[in-house]
């Protein structure tokens, strides 16, 4: 991947922006309610997915968005994936269909980075939703490289 010129692989230095940030004291409680989280490893029929509000996050999102646990993960089940690098993504689509039809999840929130290749994860979720028999609301949020929410919108309409 070293020769890749796409925005997703471009080297950018944020050190200056983070240098003057005040240091947080105390620990932040994890909001993770399950294990595993990687899409190849999860079982869509696991009890914590039943009727749950589910987050499907691109791998980089939790690193870029500082308040990931409290803002996006709290009260939700999660699966993570990389739409650019992961192999066997047809398996992901089947698992999302199973979330919707078998686990009867309540909502799906797709979190992606602003880099163009990340849109693939949203497309994959939308394709899976089309194949599912049940209908659920799908929301997406786009996170900037420096952790801002650039866009947050319903994806069904």
């Amino acid at each position: 991947m070293s020769g890749c010129n796409c925005p997703g692989g471009q080297a950018i230095d944020f050190r200056q922006e983070t240098e003057n940030e005040p240091e947080l004291t105390g620990s932040v409680k994890s909001q993770l309610r399950q294990w595993p989280v990687q899409m190849h490893l999860i079982n869509p029929a696991a009890p914590y997915f039943q009727k749950a509000d589910v987050v499907l996050a691109a791998d980089c999102v939790a690193f870029a968005f500082g308040n990931f646990h409290n803002h996006f993960l709290k009260g939700k089940a999660v699966g993570i994936a990389c739409p650019k690098l992961d192999e066997g993504q047809e398996g992901y689509e089947e698992k999302i269909v199973s979330w919707i039809d078998d686990a009867k999840i309540n909502t799906l929130t797709v979190l992606i980075m602003q880099v163009p290749c990340c849109r693939g994860l949203l497309s994959l979720a939308q394709e899976a939703a089309k194949k599912a028999k049940r209908k659920i609301p799908i929301k997406y949020a786009v996170i900037s490289l420096q952790g801002e929410i650039l866009e947050e919108e319903w994806a069904n309409n």
């Binding site: 509000d53 209908k135 609301p137």
Partner: peptide
Amino acid sequence: SDSQIGRLYSDFL
């Protein structure tokens, strides 16, 4: 909340 929206959709359907 998103969760309320999800239940609302299911109830409407």
